[in-house]
Simulated assay, not measured.
Amino acid sequence: MGIQESFKRYVEVGRVVLINTGEHKHKLAVIVEIVDQNRQAVIDGPVAGVPRQVLRYSQVTLTRFVIKLPRGAHTPVVKKAFEASGVTEQWNSSKWAKTLKARELRRNNSDFDRFKAAALKQQRRRVINTAAKKVQA
């Protein structure tokens, strides 16, 4: 199997990207124009509140979603296509989005939340260990 057969995410107009850095971190946007093949693209994310801007490819991650858009599409066109394609719902149900959400929840836990989680893990371990001992005996 060659590289071309296994590689599926290309930088293209209409490709939905996840922003990695800055104030819009973990928000979805769409590539509307390619400025430079190696470094930059114009992105727009009207549904997620991301303004139209030029970002480096190192600041975004390509997702598997692609929206049918003309090059240089204006913000209302992008918004209409984004909403019609249902990408937001598909993204929210993806494992990737759920992982990011769980990470964020763990990061924002208070001391008491961490204590409760540890106590629940202890209870679970006790139940599992007593059941395992009964099976062995």
Results as ranks from 00 to 15, higher is better:
R9W: 10
A132N: 13
A73R: 00
Q90K: 14
A97G: 07
V77I: 15
T21N: 00
H24V: 12
V66M: 08
V47H: 05
I128L: 14
L120H: 12
V78C: 09
Q136V: 13
A102Y: 12
I43Q: 10
D44W: 02
G2R: 07
Q136I: 09
N92L: 10
R107D: 12
A48H: 13
V47C: 09
L62D: 03
E23M: 09
A97Q: 08
K80W: 04
R71I: 01
A132D: 14
K116N: 02
F82I: 03
L120Y: 12
A81D: 11
N20Y: 04
L18I: 09
S85C: 08
L55K: 11
R71W: 09
R56G: 15
A132P: 14
V135R: 14
R56H: 03
E33C: 01
S85V: 02
S94Q: 09
R106E: 12
A97S: 07
V13Q: 10
Q123P: 13
R114G: 02
V47K: 05
R114K: 07
K80E: 05
T75I: 09
K68D: 03
G22D: 06
T21M: 00
V50K: 10
G72Q: 07
V50W: 12
T99H: 12
R52L: 02
P46K: 00
K101F: 15
K27I: 10
I3D: 11
K27N: 04
G86W: 02
Q37I: 04
T63E: 02
A119D: 07
Q53D: 09
I34P: 11
K25L: 10
D44V: 00
L55A: 06
A97F: 05
K95W: 15
S58T: 13
P70I: 07
R56K: 07
A137R: 00
V35G: 06
F7A: 11
K79E: 01
P46R: 01
K68W: 05
Y10W: 00
E104I: 01
A97T: 02
G49T: 03
G2F: 15
F65I: 04
V17T: 06
F112M: 08
L28K: 01
